[in-house]
């Protein structure tokens, strides 16, 4: 609706609406002065406009829904340097010669770990090192991946995974460079991540440790079932979301934290960690510095683990002692 024209109560109606007797008086009536305020009348909101949630103002506290804030939140738990890909090759034990203590351990083997790409904050929004391991024939590799590997200057890799790092200094290993087992040091702590053994469709007893049902006392044809799935009317007559039931077990990503590195063998690509590691033999495993322990003072780039650098570090460690 267009704004209504101002009504000026001081003015007389148009002359044609006036009685003829008064028409002669019209010029005698003085015109009122222009109004001192705006006279447009329309509908106005009584609420003050709300500011945009996403328009950040410097005076306000920092937003926590940005990628920058997300990286800052994860800064404490993001390793400083890349991890490596290893294959689980079996379990054995090691003895401590002094205390005689036996430690069950898992033997991991690294196979041709090479850096395939770097992920940067500017380009990808985060910092990460893409590591490839193993070997894949060129025939079985797609053309796009071949181009990716060719740019990195590495042979096609069977496994390609990313390891997030905290910042730019985590990209110490250049693209195309080969990293061996001496990337890890004896005594440091690592987290390992792998796909667990798949058990298939399993019942509640095996999958969740349910107790099952009695073998006798009149029990009929139901010994390993899960029993009740919940109450009836009054409790809602429904199955609550998240109710543990039979289903597919295993074959999921499992992280085991804080495993100690017991042995490192660069020539044979062996890393021995204590305890067990998810998955069957030859399962590919991600090994990275443990996030809940102090970061190791380990090598950040290949030059630190060259034979000369290792000799220097051992000398430096030996002299103060």
């Amino acid at each position: 609706m267009p704004p209504m024209p101002p009504l000026n109560w001081g003015l007389l109606p148009p002359s044609f609406l006036m009685p003829s007797s008064t028409r002669s008086l019209l010029p005698l009536i003085p015109l009122s002065a222009a109004p001192s305020h705006t006279t447009v009348r329309t509908i106005k909101s009584v609420n003050t406009p709300r500011p945009d949630r996403f328009a950040h103002h410097p005076k306000k506290p920092a937003l926590n829904s940005t990628s920058r804030a997300a990286l800052a939140r994860k800064a404490l738990t993001t390793p400083l340097r890349t991890g490596l890909l290893a294959q689980k090759r079996g379990m054995t034990a090691v003895f401590d010669p002094e205390t005689g203590r036996r430690t069950a351990c898992t033997v991991l083997q690294l196979d041709r770990n090479e850096v395939v790409a770097h992920k940067t904050r500017d380009k990808n929004g985060y910092w990460a090192v893409q590591v490839g391991a193993g070997h894949k024939s060129i025939d079985n590799t797609t053309k796009p991946m071949l181009g990716h590997f060719a740019v990195a200057g590495v042979e096609p890799k069977r496994w390609v995974m990313e390891f997030k790092v905290k910042g730019k200094e985590g990209l110490g290993v250049g693209v195309g460079e080969h990293v061996g087992a001496s990337w890890f040091s004896v005594g440091q702590w690592v987290d390992v991540k792998g796909i667990s053994r798949g058990m298939g469709f399993e019942g509640g007893m095996k999958r969740h440790g349910f107790s099952g049902q009695p073998a006798s006392h009149g029990q009929s044809l139901m010994h390993r079932g899960m029993g009740s799935a919940g109450g009836s009317q009054g409790s809602g007559s429904r199955v609550l979301p998240g109710k543990r039931m039979a289903g597919n077990m295993g074959n999921e990503s499992v992280t085991v934290k804080n495993l100690k590195v017991l042995q490192v063998d660069e020539a044979n690509g062996i890393v021995v960690v204590n305890g067990c590691v998810p998955g069957p033999k030859n399962q590919i495993i991600k090994v990275q510095d443990a996030m809940s322990k102090p970061w190791p003072a380990g090598p950040m780039k290949l030059a630190d683990i060259s034979p000369a650098a290792l000799a220097e570090s051992t000398e430096a460690a030996a002299t103060p002692a």
């Binding site: 090759r89 079996g90 379990m91 054995t92 090691v94 351990c105 033997v107 083997q109 690294l110 196979d111 041709r112 090479e114 070997h135 060719a150 740019v151 990195a152 200057g153 042979e155 250049g174 693209v175 195309g176 460079e177 080969h178 042995q263 063998d265 020539a267 044979n268 690509g269 062996i270 021995v272």
Partner: peptide
């Protein structure tokens, strides 16, 4: 990637050829 290849003198060997049974080695 010619520059990187020059910097990298030799391609790594398959580790299974070097050490076929790491558990036995340990």
């Amino acid at each position: 990637s010619s520059s990187k290849l020059a910097a990298q003198p030799q391609k790594p060997r398959a580790i299974r050829r070097t050490c076929h049974d790491p558990v036995a080695a340990v």
